[in-house]
Design a binder for these strands. Structure first.
Lengths: 242, 242
DNA sequence: CGGGAAGTTGAAGCCAGTCAAGATTTGTGG
DNA sequence: CCACAAATCTTGACTGGCTTCAACTTCCCG
């Protein structure tokens, strides 16, 4: 049985901007169903023109691109509240693939309805643009990490970023969170080799900065990590939820 | 004297989707003026909440982020037709800085009007989202280049990408274009050192793949470059113009 | 209990960074 | 129009962070 938008567990979080009753109702009409998938299942494929768009409701996933010679660049992690398929929605073609890293639940929308939705609810259209801008913001940060920071700094940045994002939607308990990715996923996100990623992770563990093992990430002192990563540790700004 | 949108030299290019008379008129009302700036002038600063948004009309520029320890990541080049300030427009704060690399002319819009514009012209709002998606697409590509490709491949990719983009708006004559950037700009875009960028550029020149010297980029065989870069050489999709 | 995926660790080599110095271009004031 | 300074580009030598190769361990799951 699909969750009603009025009962959406995500909207409770302070991370998301509050929505009017009407907007919730509009989302409910836009939503055509719910999809539950297992870890490892692909959601969208690069280059495809999916008839459906999604919002992640539960679980974590991976956005990635693949090069001709087989290399993989992980572009971002997917968290609950993330919108999936924007590019297919507007440009008609995904620029990256998405797959589930844990079991996931997705809200499903019809791509063909997106334009109507945009027209009849311009303020929600504005919110979609907002989400696109947030993604652009993140990608700029990621590019900066990969381009300018050392492996040690980049990993500090990535783990901190992930942790803070998880905190904002209540995925952190006791300074620890479930992180269902492989070391290879993180390596591919930062343009590092698996071996070097592994060794750098143990250095972070050794220095008691961050401990990611057994699928759980624990961070005790965010400030120290932020310092190494070279970022400010400011509050996560509120964002719209589709 | 400011250019009339109805006379906009950019809209002639096949790169941009055709606009209805009404849309052109709406843009004309949204546009509050024109700004001419010299090479080296900053346009927007990271973190700022500019009251104005822009569309590049003439000239080339640079989007970049700066880290605490002084490193700079060039996030993208700005070409005529690019929209500048989207993030300030929706999120209230720029996530990167923009500055002019050559003399530039910019169309100026009021940020405060953006929301009204969005509401009264949802199809144009949709176009803004489109532009955001295009940028996201590009950033994913850039991240892949920096993360997965060697210096030689990454430079091939970057020069080719720039060249093709320039072709689409008629900036290429005789297989050659003006490219007013510094080698350091390209180095900062690809996460490489200036020295190594310089040496790799001469290797590209030596192999007759691409010649960027005296502020001019010449490419004779795009297919060969594309092959090295590991990308397809397909037609540039049409995009909206704000 | 066997096999495959993921994680760990050591050793060797290279791509790209850093350092340093000189050549070339650009801008500026006398 | 020249002289000097500042940026940018170029080239060589040395260094090191990260990759690659390789082997071993641990953890699942059928």
């Amino acid at each position: 049985m699909a969750t009603k938008c009025s009962q959406c567990p995500l909207r409770r979080h302070a991370l998301f901007k509050t929505m009017s009753e009407q907007d919730v109702a509009a989302m409910q009409r836009f939503k055509v169903g719910e999809l539950t998938i297992e870890a490892g299942t692909p959601v969208l494929i690069e280059g495809s023109n999916s008839p459906q768009l999604f919002t992640a409701l539960r679980g974590l996933g991976l956005r990635y691109k693949t090069t001709i010679d087989g290399a993989r660049q992980v572009v971002n992690f997917v968290f609950p509240g993330d919108f999936i398929g924007l590019q297919a929605g507007v440009m008609g073609e995904m620029s990256h693939s998405v797959e589930a890293s844990s079991n996931m639940t997705l809200c499903v929308f019809n791509r063909s309805e997106l334009w109507n939705f945009f027209k009849s609810h311009p303020e929600r259209g504005f919110d979609i643009t907002w989400l696109a801008a947030v993604e652009e913001h993140f990608l700029g940060e990621a590019l900066t990490s990969v381009g300018q920071r050392s492996a040690f700094e980049a990993l500090s940045w990535a783990l901190l970023r992930t942790f803070v994002r998880a905190e904002a939607i209540g995925l952190v308990q006791n300074r620890s969170m479930r992180l269902p990715f492989r070391q290879k996923d993180l390596a591919d996100a930062l343009g590092l080799s698996l071996v070097h990623t592994n060794k750098t992770l143990s250095k972070l563990r050794e220095k008691q900065l961050a401990d990611w093992s057994d699928g759980h990430l624990t961070i005790n002192d965010k400030a120290r990590l932020a310092d190494i990563a070279g970022v400010e540790l400011d509050v996560v700004p509120r964002r719209p939820l589709m």
